[in-house]
Amino acid sequence: MAIIVERKRLSFWERTYLPQILSGLYITLKNFFAPKVTLEYPDQQPVIPQGYRGAPVLVCDSDGRHKCVSCQLCEFVCPSKAIKVTPSAIPEDSQYAFIEKGPADFQIDMSRCIYCGLCQEACPEQAIFMGSEFSINAYTRAGLVRHKDDLYKIGGVVPDKIMKWQKIKEREAK
């Protein structure tokens, strides 16, 4: 059913539309001289807020231990199949040999990543984080595939409150 809306009766000057145009011109003129809101991107960098979901990266704990144990849950949960983990055993001569497992390679194809953050959510070791990086570019497709070493380098250190593996090592040393 059509609803008939009662409109306000307009005065003569309103009906000429001219005062409205003039007030419009005044508003646009005010805005013309108002400060500009554009961020001049490459010269000025935006402030990245907390919880920003940029490119996923791998991180080390405060001891410098590579946190990923290559459980491949991120690979499983990744909806765009951007992650490819090649699991392997940690070599016996490593100080972290007791952790047993770590990635031989960890590839994230940034041309496939959709920045959903599910990998971060799925990670049981808190080894993968959505970083603050948003400008990712390369000259080739292969250049957009990030490998383990790059990912740790970009990710850096994220302090770990629990230090699970440190505790296990101490316990085993007893």
């Binding site: 646009t28 805005n31 013309f32 400060p35 500009k36 809101v37 554009t38």
Partner: peptide
């Protein structure tokens, strides 16, 4: 330029 300035851009 004018349209940008009116819209708060550069």
């Amino acid at each position: 330029k004018v349209c940008a300035y009116i819209q708060g851009r550069w």
